[in-house]
Design a protein around this nucleic acid. Structure first.
Lengths: 135, 135
DNA sequence: AGTTGACTTCGAGCGCGCTCGAAGTCGCAG
DNA sequence: CTGCGACTTCGAGCGCGCTCGAAGTCAACT
Protein backbone atom coordinates (compact mmCIF):
# COMPACT_ATOMS: atom_id res chain seq x y z
CA UNK A 1 0.00 0.00 0.00
CA UNK A 2 2.83 2.39 0.73
CA UNK A 3 5.04 2.31 -2.34
CA UNK A 4 4.63 0.06 -5.33
CA UNK A 5 7.06 -2.77 -4.69
CA UNK A 6 10.54 -1.49 -5.32
CA UNK A 7 12.88 -1.62 -2.35
CA UNK A 8 16.47 -0.34 -2.37
CA UNK A 9 17.60 -3.95 -1.88
CA UNK A 10 17.64 -4.85 1.79
CA UNK A 11 17.23 -1.46 3.34
CA UNK A 12 14.59 -0.92 5.98
CA UNK A 13 13.15 2.12 7.67
CA UNK A 14 13.28 2.37 11.43
CA UNK A 15 9.59 1.53 11.66
CA UNK A 16 10.06 -1.61 9.61
CA UNK A 17 12.93 -2.76 11.76
CA UNK A 18 10.96 -2.00 14.89
CA UNK A 19 8.03 -4.07 13.75
CA UNK A 20 10.15 -6.96 12.54
CA UNK A 21 12.16 -7.20 15.71
CA UNK A 22 9.37 -6.37 18.08
CA UNK A 23 10.75 -3.23 19.63
CA UNK A 24 9.86 0.44 19.44
CA UNK A 25 11.42 3.03 17.19
CA UNK A 26 12.23 4.90 20.38
CA UNK A 27 14.16 1.92 21.67
CA UNK A 28 16.06 1.59 18.42
CA UNK A 29 17.20 5.20 18.54
CA UNK A 30 18.01 4.77 22.20
CA UNK A 31 20.24 1.79 21.42
CA UNK A 32 21.97 3.83 18.80
CA UNK A 33 22.66 6.85 20.99
CA UNK A 34 23.81 4.53 23.78
CA UNK A 35 26.40 3.08 21.45
CA UNK A 36 24.97 -0.41 21.31
CA UNK A 37 25.09 -0.54 17.53
CA UNK A 38 28.44 -1.31 16.02
CA UNK A 39 27.81 0.79 12.95
CA UNK A 40 25.20 3.47 12.96
CA UNK A 41 22.71 2.78 10.19
CA UNK A 42 23.25 4.72 7.01
CA UNK A 43 21.09 7.73 6.28
CA UNK A 44 19.13 8.90 3.29
CA UNK A 45 20.08 12.26 1.82
CA UNK A 46 17.47 13.81 4.07
CA UNK A 47 18.75 12.21 7.22
CA UNK A 48 16.50 9.22 7.66
CA UNK A 49 17.86 5.95 8.93
CA UNK A 50 18.24 3.00 6.61
CA UNK A 51 18.97 -0.36 8.13
CA UNK A 52 20.80 -3.00 6.13
CA UNK A 53 21.22 -6.73 6.61
CA UNK A 54 24.24 -6.35 8.85
CA UNK A 55 22.48 -3.81 11.02
CA UNK A 56 19.58 -6.21 11.42
CA UNK A 57 21.77 -9.12 12.37
CA UNK A 58 23.61 -7.09 14.94
CA UNK A 59 20.44 -5.75 16.52
CA UNK A 60 19.16 -9.30 16.84
CA UNK A 61 22.33 -10.13 18.72
CA UNK A 62 21.80 -7.12 20.97
CA UNK A 63 18.30 -8.39 21.66
CA UNK A 64 19.67 -11.79 22.61
CA UNK A 65 22.15 -10.24 24.98
CA UNK A 66 19.47 -8.02 26.52
CA UNK A 67 17.02 -10.90 26.79
CA UNK A 68 19.61 -12.90 28.68
CA UNK A 69 20.16 -10.06 31.08
CA UNK A 70 23.30 -8.36 29.84
CA UNK A 71 23.21 -4.74 30.97
CA UNK A 72 23.21 -2.01 28.33
CA UNK A 73 26.56 -0.76 29.58
CA UNK A 74 28.16 -4.11 28.94
CA UNK A 75 26.67 -4.47 25.50
CA UNK A 76 28.12 -1.07 24.73
CA UNK A 77 31.55 -2.28 25.79
CA UNK A 78 31.18 -5.33 23.60
CA UNK A 79 30.06 -3.17 20.69
CA UNK A 80 33.09 -0.96 21.24
CA UNK A 81 35.36 -3.98 20.92
CA UNK A 82 33.67 -4.94 17.68
CA UNK A 83 33.99 -1.37 16.44
CA UNK A 84 37.66 -1.41 17.30
CA UNK A 85 38.03 -4.10 14.66
CA UNK A 86 40.46 -6.99 14.37
CA UNK A 87 42.64 -7.71 17.36
CA UNK A 88 39.95 -7.54 20.01
CA UNK A 89 38.64 -11.05 19.45
CA UNK A 90 40.04 -12.41 22.68
CA UNK A 91 38.36 -9.71 24.69
CA UNK A 92 35.08 -10.22 22.90
CA UNK A 93 35.32 -13.92 23.61
CA UNK A 94 35.96 -13.13 27.27
CA UNK A 95 32.92 -10.87 27.48
CA UNK A 96 30.64 -13.46 25.93
CA UNK A 97 32.08 -16.32 27.95
CA UNK A 98 31.65 -14.44 31.20
CA UNK A 99 28.10 -13.59 30.24
CA UNK A 100 27.36 -17.18 29.33
CA UNK A 101 28.67 -18.32 32.68
CA UNK A 102 26.44 -15.89 34.54
CA UNK A 103 23.41 -16.87 32.51
CA UNK A 104 23.99 -20.55 33.18
CA UNK A 105 24.33 -19.87 36.88
CA UNK A 106 21.14 -17.90 36.82
CA UNK A 107 19.32 -20.62 34.94
CA UNK A 108 20.36 -23.07 37.63
CA UNK A 109 19.21 -20.74 40.36
CA UNK A 110 15.86 -20.08 38.78
CA UNK A 111 15.37 -23.78 38.14
CA UNK A 112 16.04 -24.53 41.79
CA UNK A 113 13.58 -21.88 42.97
CA UNK A 114 11.08 -23.16 40.47
CA UNK A 115 11.34 -26.59 42.03
CA UNK A 116 10.33 -25.18 45.38
CA UNK A 117 7.49 -23.23 43.83
CA UNK A 118 6.28 -26.33 42.04
CA UNK A 119 6.30 -28.17 45.35
CA UNK A 120 4.09 -25.46 46.76
CA UNK A 121 1.78 -25.78 43.78
CA UNK A 122 1.60 -29.53 44.29
CA UNK A 123 0.70 -28.92 47.90
CA UNK A 124 -2.26 -26.75 46.96
CA UNK A 125 -3.25 -29.16 44.20
CA UNK A 126 -3.29 -32.10 46.61
CA UNK A 127 -5.26 -30.10 49.13
CA UNK A 128 -7.79 -29.09 46.51
CA UNK A 129 -7.81 -32.45 44.81
CA UNK A 130 -9.41 -33.96 47.91
CA UNK A 131 -11.61 -31.05 48.99
CA UNK A 132 -14.40 -32.62 51.05
CA UNK A 133 -12.69 -35.45 52.80
CA UNK A 134 -12.63 -34.97 56.55
CA UNK A 135 -12.59 -38.72 57.26
CA UNK B 1 29.84 -12.19 71.58
CA UNK B 2 26.55 -10.36 71.71
CA UNK B 3 24.58 -11.88 74.54
CA UNK B 4 25.51 -15.04 76.43
CA UNK B 5 23.61 -17.70 74.56
CA UNK B 6 19.98 -17.49 75.53
CA UNK B 7 17.59 -16.80 72.72
CA UNK B 8 13.84 -16.31 73.10
CA UNK B 9 13.35 -19.55 71.17
CA UNK B 10 13.39 -18.85 67.45
CA UNK B 11 13.04 -15.12 67.41
CA UNK B 12 15.38 -13.06 65.32
CA UNK B 13 16.10 -9.38 65.02
CA UNK B 14 15.78 -7.69 61.65
CA UNK B 15 19.55 -7.60 61.29
CA UNK B 16 19.82 -11.33 61.92
CA UNK B 17 17.17 -12.10 59.35
CA UNK B 18 18.81 -9.78 56.88
CA UNK B 19 22.14 -11.50 57.26
CA UNK B 20 20.71 -15.00 57.12
CA UNK B 21 18.67 -14.38 54.02
CA UNK B 22 21.15 -12.14 52.29
CA UNK B 23 19.11 -9.00 52.03
CA UNK B 24 19.22 -5.60 53.68
CA UNK B 25 17.24 -4.48 56.70
CA UNK B 26 15.96 -1.71 54.47
CA UNK B 27 14.62 -4.27 52.01
CA UNK B 28 12.95 -6.23 54.80
CA UNK B 29 11.10 -3.18 56.05
CA UNK B 30 10.25 -2.30 52.48
CA UNK B 31 8.70 -5.72 51.92
CA UNK B 32 6.70 -5.27 55.05
CA UNK B 33 5.33 -1.84 54.19
CA UNK B 34 4.57 -3.06 50.68
CA UNK B 35 2.43 -5.81 52.12
CA UNK B 36 4.54 -8.72 50.95
CA UNK B 37 4.60 -10.33 54.36
CA UNK B 38 1.52 -12.30 55.30
CA UNK B 39 1.83 -11.50 58.97
CA UNK B 40 3.83 -8.55 60.13
CA UNK B 41 6.54 -9.72 62.50
CA UNK B 42 5.72 -9.35 66.18
CA UNK B 43 7.23 -6.50 68.12
CA UNK B 44 9.03 -6.22 71.41
CA UNK B 45 7.47 -3.97 74.04
CA UNK B 46 9.61 -1.17 72.68
CA UNK B 47 8.57 -1.63 69.12
CA UNK B 48 11.37 -3.68 67.65
CA UNK B 49 10.66 -6.39 65.13
CA UNK B 50 10.98 -10.03 66.10
CA UNK B 51 10.90 -12.61 63.34
CA UNK B 52 9.74 -16.15 64.07
CA UNK B 53 10.08 -19.38 62.15
CA UNK B 54 6.97 -18.77 60.11
CA UNK B 55 8.08 -15.28 59.19
CA UNK B 56 11.38 -16.69 58.02
CA UNK B 57 9.80 -19.38 55.89
CA UNK B 58 7.49 -16.92 54.24
CA UNK B 59 10.25 -14.47 53.46
CA UNK B 60 12.23 -17.27 51.84
CA UNK B 61 9.21 -17.90 49.63
CA UNK B 62 9.04 -14.21 48.79
CA UNK B 63 12.69 -14.38 47.80
CA UNK B 64 12.02 -17.33 45.54
CA UNK B 65 9.18 -15.50 43.86
CA UNK B 66 11.27 -12.38 43.44
CA UNK B 67 14.25 -14.37 42.15
CA UNK B 68 12.04 -15.94 39.52
CA UNK B 69 10.83 -12.55 38.42
CA UNK B 70 7.47 -12.15 40.07
CA UNK B 71 6.77 -8.43 40.47
CA UNK B 72 6.32 -7.02 43.95
CA UNK B 73 2.74 -6.10 43.15
CA UNK B 74 1.86 -9.68 42.33
CA UNK B 75 3.54 -11.04 45.43
CA UNK B 76 1.46 -8.59 47.42
CA UNK B 77 -1.69 -9.97 45.81
CA UNK B 78 -0.62 -13.49 46.64
CA UNK B 79 0.13 -12.46 50.22
CA UNK B 80 -3.30 -10.89 50.44
CA UNK B 81 -4.89 -14.18 49.45
CA UNK B 82 -2.92 -15.98 52.12
CA UNK B 83 -3.90 -13.32 54.65
CA UNK B 84 -7.52 -13.76 53.69
CA UNK B 85 -7.24 -17.29 55.04
CA UNK B 86 -9.00 -20.49 54.06
CA UNK B 87 -11.11 -20.39 50.93
CA UNK B 88 -8.60 -18.65 48.69
CA UNK B 89 -6.60 -21.76 47.88
CA UNK B 90 -7.81 -22.00 44.32
CA UNK B 91 -6.80 -18.43 43.62
CA UNK B 92 -3.42 -18.94 45.21
CA UNK B 93 -2.91 -22.01 43.10
CA UNK B 94 -3.86 -20.01 40.02
CA UNK B 95 -1.35 -17.28 40.85
CA UNK B 96 1.48 -19.75 41.35
CA UNK B 97 0.57 -21.81 38.32
CA UNK B 98 0.47 -18.75 36.09
CA UNK B 99 3.81 -17.67 37.46
CA UNK B 100 5.29 -21.08 36.91
CA UNK B 101 4.12 -21.06 33.33
CA UNK B 102 5.74 -17.71 32.67
CA UNK B 103 8.97 -18.77 34.28
CA UNK B 104 9.13 -21.93 32.20
CA UNK B 105 8.49 -19.93 29.05
CA UNK B 106 11.22 -17.56 30.02
CA UNK B 107 13.65 -20.36 30.75
CA UNK B 108 13.01 -21.71 27.26
CA UNK B 109 13.53 -18.33 25.73
CA UNK B 110 16.75 -17.67 27.58
CA UNK B 111 18.00 -21.14 26.73
CA UNK B 112 17.35 -20.52 23.06
CA UNK B 113 19.17 -17.19 23.11
CA UNK B 114 21.98 -18.82 25.00
CA UNK B 115 22.35 -21.33 22.22
CA UNK B 116 22.92 -18.54 19.73
CA UNK B 117 25.36 -16.84 22.05
CA UNK B 118 27.25 -20.07 22.50
CA UNK B 119 27.45 -20.42 18.74
CA UNK B 120 29.03 -16.99 18.61
CA UNK B 121 31.48 -17.98 21.31
CA UNK B 122 32.38 -21.10 19.39
CA UNK B 123 32.98 -18.95 16.34
CA UNK B 124 35.48 -16.78 18.17
CA UNK B 125 37.06 -19.81 19.79
CA UNK B 126 37.58 -21.50 16.45
CA UNK B 127 38.99 -18.31 14.98
CA UNK B 128 41.37 -17.92 17.89
CA UNK B 129 42.16 -21.61 18.11
CA UNK B 130 43.83 -21.37 14.72
CA UNK B 131 45.36 -17.91 14.98
CA UNK B 132 48.31 -17.96 12.55
CA UNK B 133 47.08 -20.12 9.76
CA UNK B 134 46.78 -18.18 6.52
CA UNK B 135 47.27 -21.33 4.44
C1' DA C 1 -0.68 22.34 -4.28
C1' DG C 2 -2.10 20.45 -0.25
C1' DT C 3 -2.58 17.08 3.31
C1' DT C 4 -1.21 13.30 5.85
C1' DG C 5 1.80 10.84 8.42
C1' DA C 6 6.44 8.94 9.08
C1' DC C 7 10.53 10.62 10.19
C1' DT C 8 14.11 13.72 12.90
C1' DT C 9 16.30 15.54 17.61
C1' DC C 10 15.87 16.68 22.32
C1' DG C 11 14.89 16.47 26.96
C1' DA C 12 11.76 15.16 30.44
C1' DG C 13 9.28 11.47 32.77
C1' DC C 14 8.26 6.89 34.47
C1' DG C 15 7.91 2.22 36.72
C1' DC C 16 10.41 -0.78 39.33
C1' DG C 17 12.83 -2.19 43.38
C1' DC C 18 15.10 -0.96 46.36
C1' DT C 19 18.87 2.27 48.86
C1' DC C 20 20.20 5.92 51.67
C1' DG C 21 20.19 9.32 55.19
C1' DA C 22 18.22 12.02 58.85
C1' DA C 23 16.46 12.27 63.31
C1' DG C 24 15.07 10.17 67.15
C1' DT C 25 14.55 5.97 70.71
C1' DC C 26 16.21 2.21 73.14
C1' DG C 27 19.13 -1.95 75.07
C1' DC C 28 22.88 -3.14 77.29
C1' DA C 29 28.11 -3.55 78.39
C1' DG C 30 31.46 -1.29 81.14
C1' DC D 1 25.08 6.36 84.42
C1' DT D 2 27.34 6.90 80.27
C1' DG D 3 28.14 5.50 75.85
C1' DC D 4 27.40 3.36 71.70
C1' DG D 5 25.39 0.78 68.42
C1' DA D 6 21.19 -1.25 66.72
C1' DC D 7 16.80 -0.22 66.17
C1' DT D 8 12.60 2.90 64.68
C1' DT D 9 9.91 5.93 60.96
C1' DC D 10 9.93 8.88 57.11
C1' DG D 11 10.76 10.72 52.79
C1' DA D 12 13.94 11.52 49.23
C1' DG D 13 17.04 9.61 45.78
C1' DC D 14 18.89 6.36 42.46
C1' DG D 15 20.10 3.13 38.58
C1' DC D 16 18.16 0.95 34.89
C1' DG D 17 15.89 0.79 30.54
C1' DC D 18 13.28 2.60 28.18
C1' DT D 19 8.85 5.69 27.01
C1' DC D 20 6.66 9.80 25.81
C1' DG D 21 5.81 14.21 23.87
C1' DA D 22 7.01 18.48 21.64
C1' DA D 23 8.46 20.79 17.67
C1' DG D 24 9.99 20.65 13.36
C1' DT D 25 11.26 18.46 8.50
C1' DC D 26 10.21 15.88 4.69
C1' DA D 27 8.00 12.24 1.31
C1' DA D 28 4.76 11.09 -1.46
C1' DC D 29 -0.20 10.27 -2.62
C1' DT D 30 -4.32 12.65 -4.48
Amino acid sequence: MTSTEERPAASLTIAEVAQRLGLSTHALRYYETEGLLVGAPSRTTTGRRRYGEDDLRWIVMVQRLRATGMPVREIREYAELVRAGAGTERQRLAVLTAHRKRVLAQLDEVTAHLGAITAKIDGYAAQLGAPERPR
